[in-house]
């Protein structure tokens, strides 16, 4: 265990925000889900008792009939905004006093940094370069992430859970987002920042970065890759369809989707599931390409 190496990585100034992110994201995930579960208990209670559902104010927040439903922005919101601005300013000032922004040697095209890493928010995409060719990892996948995010409101036909935290009423949507945000986007960033060392090789946290390390791995291409891809697409489409029509409630939501909405959703979910599959194939079986053509490889 090389603690010094670990500390060097964690204390690299530009990595400090990711340490912050590693603390903030679990906290806010817990914070959001805790409110979701509280609302879910309320929903269960109201569903069991229709008489209560008619009279209840339907929030977990405290409520008395004589209270106004709305409060004045001045001062009740503005004072919070002012306070938030003050707190953010103090945090930013203290952070800037304690920690200096990095400044390396002057740019030198003849001296390659090893490892040379993208800024942390793009390191996840850089990590995808291990598994995909640059046209996929650097161009097509980011483009599809952006388009996929934009498509979310138009393919989520579930009318429940608008404006309040809930897990029970939106299981499929929330699990998909958590999988994409935590399981793919942030995991890739953490791997790229904390695990990848010189030569973009895998060094577990605490392992010494050995600049002379060599890895003798022979990657191979998957035979009958087109068949495999077709089989995967069919299997994934079938599994996704089964999952989103698992319960009567989910079948009801599914019935609200148009054919086009359904196809767009399937398209993005199949592609999303393909990422971890390719990662596993590469890491476990040393598969480089699934599909080799004269023009491009996947």
């Amino acid at each position: 265990m090389d603690l010094h190496q670990l500390w060097t990585i964690l204390a690299t100034p530009d990595n400090v925000p990711i340490v912050l992110l590693a603390l903030a994201v679990p906290f806010y995930t817990w914070y959001g889900l805790r409110q979701s579960f509280a609302n879910d208990r309320l929903i269960a209670q109201l569903e069991a008792d229709p008489a209560l559902a008619r009279t209840h104010h339907r929030k977990t927040q405290p409520w008395r009939p004589e209270w106004d439903r709305e409060v004045h922005v001045w001062p009740y919101l503005l004072r919070i905004e002012f306070l938030a601005a003050l707190i953010v300013t103090v945090i930013l000032l203290v952070w800037s006093i304690l920690l200096n922004a990095p400044l390396e040697e002057p740019a030198n095209p003849n001296l390659t940094m090893n490892p040379s890493k993208a800024p942390w928010y793009f390191v996840g995409l850089q990590e995808m370069l291990v598994y995909f060719d640059p046209w996929l990892a650097g161009v097509v996948i980011p483009f599809l992430i952006i388009v996929g995010l934009m498509a979310i409101p138009y393919i989520d036909t579930n009318p429940l859970g608008s404006g309040y935290y809930t897990f029970k009423q939106r299981k499929a949507a929330i699990l998909t987002f958590l999988f994409g945000f935590l399981g793919l986007w942030l995991t890739m960033i953490f791997i790229g920042v904390f695990v990848r060392g010189p030569g973009w090789m895998w060094f577990w946290p605490g392992a010494t970065w050995d600049h002379n390390r060599l890895v003798f791995e022979v990657n191979r291409d998957l035979p009958f890759g087109a068949l495999f891809l077709a089989a995967y697409t069919a299997a994934a489409a079938w599994a996704i369809h089964k999952l989103i029509t698992l319960t009567p409630f989910h079948r009801k939501i599914h019935a609200r989707m148009s054919r086009f909405q359904y196809l767009v959703m399937q398209f993005f979910l199949i592609l999303m599931l393909a990422l971890p599959l390719k990662i596993l194939l590469r890491q476990l079986f040393r598969i480089k390409y699934l599909l080799v053509t004269p023009w491009f490889n996947i």
Binding site: G32, L93, W95, D156, P159, G161, S162, A173, F177
Partner: peptide, 29 residues
């Protein structure tokens, strides 16, 4: 330093904002 760390903070906050908007279903009709 403030410009550098402010930029990092903005990237973090914007992601958390999106996370919250998703969890509360605020993108719905």
């Amino acid at each position: 330093n403030m410009h550098r760390w402010g930029a990092h903070l903005m990237v973090i906050m914007v992601q958390l904002h999106m996370f919250r908007v998703f969890l509360t279903g605020s993108y719905k009709k």
